[in-house]
Design a binder for these strands. Structure first.
Lengths: 245, 245
DNA sequence: AGGGCACTTGCGGGAAACCGCAGAAAATGT
DNA sequence: ACATTTTCTGCGGTTTCCCGCAAGTGCCCT
């Protein structure tokens, strides 16, 4: 038995015990397994135990995995984290990619993956110090950074702002842009999300959409946004409202 | 061993096997347990096996529990269904309440409930034919039907319509109302969601919200809407777009 | 019958969203 | 260094949203 310590952060008890077994089976060099049931507790345990190896769920209440990972990485960027999540939503993938420190080893494995895949990912990250990202997740990564229907970070920021309900003027103020620039950005977001009335269906009884609201819905349905990401964005907005202005 | 047949519909393999054990332990009179891994397969299995006893998850991809339950209840309204869900979001609770046939026995238990609670619910519904609804869920039910900050069904419809991105005119057309009536409804929705600029913070640099978009976000953050409900609503909208007009 | 109460509808107007056009500014490529 | 592309910005105009005011309908209550 070695002296590696592994921290498991997962709110679902069934998944937690499953992870526990998987870790013990995959890592004979692992001497101690610590468990936490929420993002907040995960941060505390990571700090207290100086764990450099963490397996973490993304979707947790009240403090989710991305927030926990961010503070953990801020304190010790060398920490290796394997994210184990139900979904490959673009909002999650982008959220993780945004906070990974340079050169840090991390992994992203879906819960639907086989035991063997999970075992390999555990060994690759914790022993070989090598990144492992699930194929499906790679797919959404390509999409988001590719240029075909890709959203730039700027697009994403502003899409989030209209999702939060800000006016054009407020967005301009927050992002330090002119009113017209914001509106330009919006127009190209509308185009990328394909929310413009189809020319084919012509006039007559064509139902009109409110582009602003329709864009948000479309982004939600395409998993480009999700409620977790919006909660985070809302918190950031509240911060900004108090400091600025 | 009796001849009761129980159908389990749950996409997570861990939860599925946990449910399987719980059913066998709680119901000695249960002779057969059938498993399905999605809403669609659940419908097929229910039809094929004529099962009158179902335990079902709500959040599933691609066809969720509410859609499956609706078609199952349409075919045989006497079916007893126990919903076993992670969340007590108003959107889920309302979605279930909307499709329960008159006099049908059903249950709503959270996954965070104890084994004992699950056991009792299984026996109450499948043996005693009696409704069992978790305390937390009752809470959100009260909220939604009470009048304090309660949303009428009409409010909810129209809230959903703006979430889908329809214009006032389109909503008026769809719900057979005048333009002004829709706008009146919107105003009282805004009030109930409390999205109006606070009079206290006064003018100056107060950031303005687009009420329409802000209302949707607020509803999402309060779990009054969720993406599952919006997917269903989007499908209904597409149906309407093809038939009407 | 009359007085609330909830809901609906019309009118009018200020504010915001949406967008074409065109010039300035910055980033990019060769 | 120059040309090219992308992004940002201002102006003007149409449409939609947001809402105060007022009048009409139907229901329940005493």
């Amino acid at each position: 038995m070695g002296d590696m310590k592994v921290l498991i952060v997962e709110d679902d008890p069934l998944h937690r015990s499953y992870l526990h077994e998987a870790v013990v089976a995959a890592l004979p060099e692992c001497g101690t397994v610590i468990e936490a049931v929420s993002g907040g507790e995960g941060e505390i345990q990571a700090r207290a135990n100086q764990t450099a190896h963490i397996v973490m769920d993304l979707q947790m209440q009240p403090r989710n995995g991305i927030e926990a990972a961010r503070t953990i990485w801020q304190e010790r960027p060398a920490t290796r984290i394997l994210f184990w999540s139900n979904y490959a939503d673009e909002a999650y993938v982008r959220g993780v990619a945004r906070i990974v420190p340079d050169g840090a080893a991390y992994g992203y494995v879906l819960k639907s993956a086989s035991e063997e895949r999970l075992r390999l990912a555990l060994r690759s990250i914790f022993v070989e110090n090598q990144c492992v990202i699930d194929r499906e997740v790679r797919g959404t990564q390509q999409m988001s950074f590719g240029r075909s229907v890709g959203f730039s970070d700027r697009d994403y920021e502003i899409l989030m702002d209209i999702a939060l309900g800000l006016t054009d003027r407020a967005i301009a103020q927050r992002r330090r842009l002119s009113l017209r620039s914001v509106q330009n950005r919006l127009q190209q977001i509308y185009e990328k999300l394909d929310v413009y009335p189809t020319a084919g269906s012509a006039e007559g009884g064509d139902v009109q959409f409110n582009l602003r609201a329709r864009a948000v819905t479309t982004a939600l349905l395409r998993k480009l946004l999700n409620s977790g990401a919006m909660e985070r964005a809302e918190a950031e907005l509240q911060d900004w409202l108090e400091t600025a202005r």
